[in-house]
């Protein structure tokens, strides 16, 4: 067994175990931590596949930003612990049966007869001066520049949508209205009230 195979099986084992622990853990914060472990294992597998840039992006952006965002929301929302007891209602047997059938069907289609080493030969490992980022950047900024710009616009839309959704207008907040301040005139500010004076003699 070569070193690559040992790495592959170690990473795959923790990937699967952490994913299973994620979907069966009662606590949402623990689920996020297990998901972080499974993403790390996925990044290891991606490095075995020589996609170094995407593996680093998976750790930096996914674990560093998205998972922390999940943890932030879980800590911010006060999730009722008593409702967490009612789990796995009814759907667990059916879900397991469906999943096992899907895995076996996919394993039949994707098995060694179709995608084994004698059908799809293993690629030659790149030399040390191979730069994954250079290759990706060359493709990204030439052939896929339009999609790249679209992705940037998509992220902008996501930012605007997220802020618009959760932004709450305060009720008892005193704001300065500059337009009203400029448009104001003396008769709006000063109100002359005619009050009839009373005589002292009538008292």
């Amino acid at each position: 067994m070569t070193f690559d195979q040992i790495l592959f099986y170690v990473f795959s084992f923790w990937f699967i175990v952490a994913s299973l622990a994620m979907i069966f853990s009662r606590n949402a914060a623990k689920a996020v931590l297990f998901l972080i472990l499974s993403f790390f294992s996925a990044a290891g597998i991606w490095i075995l596949l020589e996609a170094e840039f995407l593996a680093i992006i998976l750790i930096l952006v996914y674990v560093g930003a998205v998972m922390v965002l999940f943890l932030f929301v879980i800590k911010m929302l006060n999730i009722d612990k008593s409702t967490l007891r009612a789990r796995f209602t009814g759907y667990l047997p059916l879900g397991l049966i469906v999943a096992v059938i899907i895995v076996f069907e996919m394993a039949m289609v994707l098995g060694y007869n179709q995608f084994g080493l004698d059908v799809v030969v293993a690629p030659v490992k790149h030399t040390a001066d191979y730069s994954n980022i250079t290759i990706l950047a060359l493709q990204l900024y030439t052939d896929y520049i339009y999609s790249f710009e679209l992705a940037a616009v998509l992220l902008l839309i996501a930012i605007i949508a997220a802020i618009t959704l959760v932004h709450r207008k305060r009720i008892n907040c005193k704001n300065q209205s500059i337009v009203d301040q400029i448009k104001v005139q003396a008769k709006d500010r000063v109100r002359l009230v005619s009050i009839s004076s009373k005589n002292k003699e009538n008292k």
Binding site: S19, I23, A28, L84, R87, F88, Y91, L92, G95, I102
Partner: peptide
Amino acid sequence: CIGLVGIFVNRTN
């Protein structure tokens, strides 16, 4: 399929 089962069985949050 693990992700699929997770969507199936999850009822809490």
